[in-house]
C-alpha cells in the first residue's frame, strides 16, 4: 500500500493548546468541509483536524481497491503522529464512521474516544416491501446488463439509471465504494474498547437508527442517541448543535 500519512490533506482548527484532538472524517463523496461548523462550535473544548479521506477532497486516490481495513491502517499513523501527548477522538459521519470503526477495532491504542454519526458499516434488515423492491431492481439491472453485453452496447447508461447517487458519482472510486459498502464491520465493532457515542437521525433512510442500535449492542462502552426530526445529512447542518453537545459530553467523561 503506497499511501503515506503525508499524502492526506487536512485542515487544522485551534491553537493546539487543548488536551483533546478531534479527527473529523466525512462521509462518501464529501470532504473536510463537512464537519467544519461542528468543529468550530467545539473550538473551546478541543483542537481539530478535518481530514480529506484518501480519494476525496485534496487527498489522492488509493492505487488499489481499498476496503475499510486499508483506510484504517493508512490513517492510523496519521492519527498517532498528530495526537502525541493528547487524547485523540475520531468523529466520523457515514463512511467516515466506518473508517473509525475499523481504526478503533484494529488499533485500540490509537483512539481515546469514538463518535459515530449516522455511521455505515453494518447491513441492516430492510422491511419486506423494500427488500422486494431492491431484489427486483437488482435482478432487472443484472438481466439488462447481460443483454447489453450480448449486444455489445455500453453499460454506463444502466449504471446511471440503476445506481445510487453515491454510486453514480463515484467514478474511479466506484470499486472502493462497492467493496466498502459490502463490508460488515461487526467483528471490528466488537473489538472496540474506547468510550463511544453513537448518534443517528430518526428520519435517516441511508443509515437508519437500526444500524446504530446494532452498533450499540456490539460496542461495549457505548451510548446510543437517536435525534428526532433529523436525517442522514441534517445531522451535520441543523442538527449540528446536538451532535456538538454529545461530543462535548463524551470528552468531559474522558
Amino acid at each position: 500500500m503506497n499511501y503515506s500519512a503525508d499524502d492526506i490533506s487536512f485542515d487544522s482548527l485551534g491553537a493546539g493548546d487543548k488536551d483533546f484532538l478531534i479527527f473529523w472524517a466525512h462521509g462518501w463523496g464529501h470532504n473536510k468541509k463537512a464537519f467544519s461548523q461542528v468543529a468550530e462550535s467545539l473550538q473551546g473544548v478541543a483542537d481539530s483536524i478535518l481530514i480529506d479521506l484518501p480519494g476525496f477532497g485534496d487527498s489522492p486516490k488509493p492505487e488499489s481497491v481499498w476496503g475499510v481495513d486499508e483506510y484504517a491502517s493508512s490513517i492510523c499513523s496519521f492519527v498517532d503522529e498528530r495526537s502525541k501527548g493528547k487524547k485523540a477522538i475520531w468523529v466520523g459521519h457515514s463512511f467516515g464512521g466506518s473508517v473509525g470503526v475499523g481504526l478503533a477495532g484494529s488499533f485500540p491504542e490509537t483512539l481515546d474516544g469514538l463518535v459515530l454519526v449516522a455511521s455505515a458499516g453494518l447491513r441492516t434488515e430492510r422491511p419486506l416491501a423494500q427488500r422486494v423492491k431492491v431484489w427486483i431492481r437488482v435482478r432487472t439491472f443484472k438481466l439488462l446488463k447481460r443483454i447489453f453485453n450480448l449486444l455489445g452496447r455500453d453499460t454506463d447508461s444502466l449504471y446511471a439509471k440503476f445506481g445510487s447517487p453515491d454510486y453514480k458519482q463515484s467514478g474511479e472510486m466506484r470499486q472502493i465504494l462497492v467493496r466498502t459498502l459490502n463490508q460488515d464491520l461487526s467483528a471490528a465493532a466488537q473489538k472496540i474498547s474506547c468510550p463511544t457515542v453513537i448518534i443517528y437521525g430518526e428520519k435517516d433512510t441511508a443509515t437508519p437508527p437500526a444500524v446504530g442500535q446494532r452498533y450499540s449492542t456490539l460496542i461495549d462502552n457505548s451510548e446510543f442517541v437517536v435525534l428526532d426530526t433529523l436525517d442522514h445529512y441534517t445531522l451535520l447542518s441543523t442538527g449540528r448543535h446536538q451532535v456538538a453537545k454529545r461530543i462535548k459530553q463524551l470528552i468531559e467523561g474522558l
Binding site: 468550530e40 462550535s41 467545539l42 473544548v45 446536538q242 456538538a244 462535548k248
Partner: peptide
Amino acid sequence: WEAAAKPVLFAE
C-alpha cells in the same frame, strides 16, 4: 459562549 473560558454550547 462556545468560545468562553469555560465553553458553553448553544444547546447547553
